[in-house]
Design a binder for these strands. Structure first.
Lengths: 342, 342
DNA sequence: CTGAAAGCGCTTACAG
DNA sequence: CTGAAAGCGCTTACAG
């Protein structure tokens, strides 16, 4: 690798001090215009780039943040990533991305890695496997800015960017009820993540508020752990076997919903005539399959932006040794009505 | 933010020199076992983490690489990202990701940003808007390891990880011919990227080798610039209007193919009876829609892994001031036969 | 086996 | 307006 140009080289070339060069480039008021002009010209000619390693060491900040995400290959998360990166770039921050693969052990290791790297702050969406939060509390104890989004832990005292999963699920279920469904099933995710729990609770509450019987047998867990297309197919098969009186399903994730719809289509079950379906997330495929899928719009890009904005606020505060009260930012969701419901 | 523990603090606590502490932690042979044990114990107790900023400044490497990608929210690219991150993590490298949004200007700026950040190497897939390559040649001139993948520039002298687009497109087209198609159209991407060109050439060659007429009117450009679902719908509509004798289409990308299929389904055109379709990339939705889509499998995850491996090789060589002959790594593709062809 | 010292490339308080 | 000097936290050649 070629050796990079340093302040010293510019200083020697111009016969002035390193101090003067440094100050000139940073536009300090106590440097003459003439010197500034000269220094800038020379720096440009030599293609001078400040050595970030040295700058970081002095300023104790890296202008870099870390992002830990359960899975990258996922429309919602890749939208969040895009939002975070876009916002970070605006503020001159770079983003290091790690994937926890839904594993608690990996998540812990990666958090450690980011701390070693001395990123200025961390944004994280928890792995499904995470039920112990001491690794997160450690970060907070070290006063490193930390923002959680989507898959959060309510008990951890840091800022969070979420949607109101319970309310959204309530809306989805209410829509099924409003369009005439009498017996409504729910495909929920795995047991742990807070948002699966909240969506389940929203579903249950909607039934209760409408004086409908809540039947635990109609709640299908995601056994394999990842919310996949196959999961939707399998649950749809089981449902047809065990409860063919069901006329509506609220499904945790569009991908699973599409899996289920594929199975229903295959078996000649008519959507929405025989069964109405509401998904969750508003993946673009939802508008595209046949019939198009009624779903809850989950604003991934906005969540990414909001998460970085909050982190940035906290990084600035931390620089001044101020602490910020953790904020919970709840973004709006909307029901997108399409053809999978009446 | 809490102040981090330094070597000096450990040294003072133990009443030995900073040098001894540093060497003990790095397991230098000239330190007594007793001292090493003591130092390690203390470091652990104090939760010592080396200050990367200082280490980077001394060692002149950051153990960080940069990745510039046209779009993140895209199944192929997010798979590549996953492959790169996984492989990088194995070797102790972190990955900074930037999105060029298919813009040449942004790509240039971001390359500059990564150079300023002094990443150890860069992996890039070019924006569609990039037709001038001086920003890439600058990187190479500075002897910074650089690997391109998928959307590459043939004239830039650096290592590349690609598939044989021409061969794959040939395979796809040959399959249409073998299954009885007589008049075969092609939906190609935008004009510029090398892989659109190569896929087009493969298509053309297959026709010629089979003594079929190549009709430029049957080649549909992607006007809007992004290869989208709507693009597929629009081109399908046009095709039905202008050339309803076409009985096979080779489509540049699965997403576009699925758009086209949706349009054909809507208009009552039977796939594959009226029109056979072959896509490109083997997005998981290809196996899931109805009818399932015959396509070319493009190994994104593998490409990511291979790209990092090559970059790692070049980073190691650069450290020893050796130069590496650029390598072109071509990964295998395969035709995945499904129900959209006979 | 141990440690004093130089140096990586910056920034900035201080003196002039 | 300018510059000498200290220091950020490491690593490592060198001396003992």
């Amino acid at each position: 690798m070629k050796e990079a140009v340093t302040l010293k080289q510019i200083a020697e070339k111009l016969g002035i001090s390193v101090t003067a060069v440094s100050k000139a480039l940073k536009d300090y008021p106590d440097i003459s215009k003439k010197t500034k002009k000269l220094v800038r010209k020379t720096a440009k000619e030599l293609n001078y780039k400040p050595n970030t390693f040295a700058v970081n060491l002095r300023t104790k900040e890296s202008k870099t943040i870390g992002l830990i995400i359960p899975v990258i290959v996922h429309h919602f998360f890749s939208n969040v990533i895009k939002g975070i990166i876009a916002q970070a770039e605006k503020k001159g921050y770079l983003v290091i991305i790690l994937q926890s693969n839904e594993s608690y052990e990996l998540e812990k290791k990666q958090l450690d890695l980011l701390m070693s790297q001395r990123v200025d702050g961390i944004i994280i969406s928890l792995a499904n496997g995470t039920s112990n939060f001491s690794h997160l509390n450690d970060i907070i104890a070290q006063e490193k800015p930390l923002v959680m989004f989507d898959k959060i832990a309510k008990v951890v005292k840091c800022s969070k960017v979420i949607i109101d999963d319970r309310k959204a699920a309530y809306m989805a279920t209410q829509h099924l009820i409003d369009t005439g469904c009498k017996r409504i099933a729910h495909f929920r995710g795995s047991l742990l993540p807070q948002n699966s729990i909240d969506r389940f609770l929203g579903y249950k509450k909607a039934l209760e508020d409408n004086n409908m019987v809540f039947d635990p047998a109609l709640v299908y867990l995601c056994e394999c752990g990842d919310m996949s297309f196959e999961e939707g197919q399998n649950n749809a098969k089981k449902l047809l076997n065990d409860h063919n009186d069901v006329d509506g399903i609220f499904i945790n994730t569009d991908l699973v919903a599409i899996g289920a719809m594929t199975e229903f289509n295959k078996q000649g079950i008519k959507i929405p005539d025989d069964i109405s379906i509401v998904g969750f997330s508003n993946w673009f495929m939802a508008s595209v399959i046949s019939p198009s899928l009624t779903t809850i719009d989950q604003p991934g890009y906005q969540m990414g932006k909001a998460a970085f904005k909050q982190l940035f606020k906290e990084i600035k505060a931390a620089k001044k040794n101020k602490t910020v009260e953790p904020e919970v930012i709840t973004l709006d969701t909307a029901l997108v009505k399409r053809d999978s419901t009446k």
